[in-house]
Amino acid sequence: MFKLLVLALVFAITQGTLGLTTDERKYFKARPYPEQNTGIQGTVSVDDDPRDAKVLILQSNGIPDHDTGTFPAPSNPNSIEVQSFNWRIPKNPTIQLETSCLPMGPIAMATNGVAIYNPFTIGCCDAGTEELDLFDMCTGHPSPSGQYHYHIFPKCLKDFGDFNSTIFGVAFDGFPIYGPEDEFGNELTNADLDACNGRTDTYGNYRYHITNEYPYFMGCYSGRVRKDVGNNVGSTTDCQCLEPVDVCTEFGGGGGGGPPPHPGQIIIDDPGDGAGAISANIAVLVMAASTAIFRILYE
C-alpha cells in the first residue's frame, strides 16, 4: 500500500503543473496605451470561477495595448472594435490521447487580451505567408467582426528584454503559450515540438511555444476545450481547415501557394491526429516518473 502511494505521489510530481500558475496569471495585463484607432484602453483579466473551482474565466475587450495600423485601410477594410470576450477554460488541463483541430476565429488569448487565431486564412492558406502585407507593424489585424487578432508571432506583445522566454498567452484548452525558447534559453523550432506546437519541459510542464515557423502559435489542441468555453469559439471536431492548401488562390495566386516561405520556415505535412506527438509526451513523462521511482525505492 505504501509503495502505491509513493508511486502516485511521484507521478503527480513528475507531471508538473499543467494549467496557469499564480505567477503566470500575473502576466495577463494591458499596458497603459490607448489604441490609436478607437482611443480605447485595452482590458484583460484571468479569474477563478466562483461557481466552479475547475474553471478559469478569461475576460477582455480585445483592444491591443500597442501600436496598430490605420484601419480601415486599402488592404483591409475592417475596423478595430471593442469586444466582450468572456471565455471559460480548464484550470487543470490534461493532455488527451487524441488531439483536436483548431476552428476559425479565436483559439487562445494573448496576455494583453487580444484574440489569437489559427494559422489559416479563410481560404485555408497559410496566413503567415499569404497575409503578410495585410498585417500591421505589430503583426496583427482586424477581422470582419472587428476582432483585432494575431496569426503569427506578435512582435509588440512584450517589452524589449522580456520577449522570448516568458508566457505569451493561454489556449482555450487551458495550456499556457510561451515564447520561442525553452526553460534553459535555447531557441525552439518545429523539430523540438509536437504536432500542436507544444512540448513537455524537464519539470513536467506542458506548454505551447510560438515560433516563426508554421503553425506559429498552435497546430492543434493537445487538451480538451470545454463545451461552454464561451462566445466566438467554433467547434473543435469539424474544422474548416486542417492544413494549408497546396495552391493558394484566395489572393489571386495560383502559382504554388503564394510567396515563398521565410528563411528557415518549414511547412510541415502533419496527418492531423497528433498521435506521434502525444506518444512522445507520454514517453517523456513515463521516463521521468520511472527514474524518480527507482531512486526513491532503491537508492
Score class of each variant (00 low, 15 high):
Gly274Lys: 07
Ala275Gly: 15
Gln265Ala: 15
Thr22Lys: 13
Gly123Val: 02
Asp126Phe: 09
Thr249Ser: 05
Phe184Met: 09
Gln147Asp: 08
Pro106Gln: 09
Val225Cys: 11
Asp49His: 13
Thr14Asn: 03
Arg31Trp: 10
Lys54Pro: 00
Tyr208Leu: 11
His149Gly: 06
Gly256Leu: 12
Thr21Glu: 12
Gln265Thr: 14
Ile293Cys: 06
Ser60Ala: 15
Ser279Met: 15
Asn212Leu: 05
Pro154Asp: 04
Leu193Asn: 00
Pro106Val: 09
Ala195Asp: 08
Trp87Lys: 05
Phe168Ile: 02
Gln265Glu: 14
Leu5Arg: 14
Thr43Asp: 11
Ser45Tyr: 13
Pro144Val: 02
Asp52Leu: 10
Pro154His: 01
Ile95Asn: 02
Ile267Ser: 14
Val233Phe: 02
Lys29Leu: 08
Asp136Thr: 05
Phe120Ile: 02
Lys155Val: 06
Met1Lys: 11
Tyr117Val: 06
Leu285Cys: 11
Gln41Leu: 14
Thr200Asp: 08
Ala8Leu: 14
Gly39Met: 07
Met137Trp: 07
Lys158Met: 15
Val229Gln: 10
Pro271Cys: 12
Gly198Pro: 05
Val114Asp: 07
Ser145Glu: 15
Gly223Ile: 05
Ser84Val: 00
Lys158Gln: 15
Leu188Ala: 07
Gly62Leu: 06
Ala108Cys: 12
Phe71Cys: 00
Asn86Val: 04
Asp273Pro: 05
Met287Ile: 14
Thr111Cys: 13
Ile116Lys: 09
Ile122Tyr: 14
Pro90His: 07
Asp162Ala: 15
Asn118Leu: 06
Ile40Arg: 13
Tyr178Pro: 12
Thr121His: 13
Ile89Gln: 03
Ala115Thr: 09
Thr21Val: 10
Tyr117Ile: 04
Ile296Gln: 08
Val55His: 15
Ile89Arg: 07
Pro64Gly: 06
Asp238Asn: 12
Asp238Met: 06
Ser222Asn: 11
Glu243His: 11
Phe85Thr: 01
Asp238Ile: 08
Asn164Phe: 13
Tyr148Val: 09
Gly42Val: 11
Phe172Leu: 07
Ile13Val: 05
Ile80Lys: 09
Arg31Ile: 01
Ile267Thr: 08
Asn86Phe: 08
Thr111Asn: 08
Ser222Ile: 10
Tyr214Cys: 05
Leu242Glu: 04
Thr211Asp: 03
Ile89Cys: 08
Glu250Gly: 03
Arg224Met: 04
Cys196Met: 03
Ser75Gly: 01
Arg226Leu: 13
Asn281Gln: 15
Ala8Gln: 12
Leu58Asp: 09
Val82Arg: 14
Pro103Arg: 00
Leu157Phe: 09
Val233Arg: 01
Gly255Tyr: 13
Asp23Ala: 14
Thr202Asn: 05
Arg25Phe: 09
Phe294Cys: 01
Gln240Arg: 05
Gln15Ile: 00
Lys26Leu: 11
Asp52Lys: 13
Glu98Trp: 06
Arg51Asp: 15
Leu20His: 03
Ala288Ser: 12
Phe11Leu: 00
Cys124Gly: 11
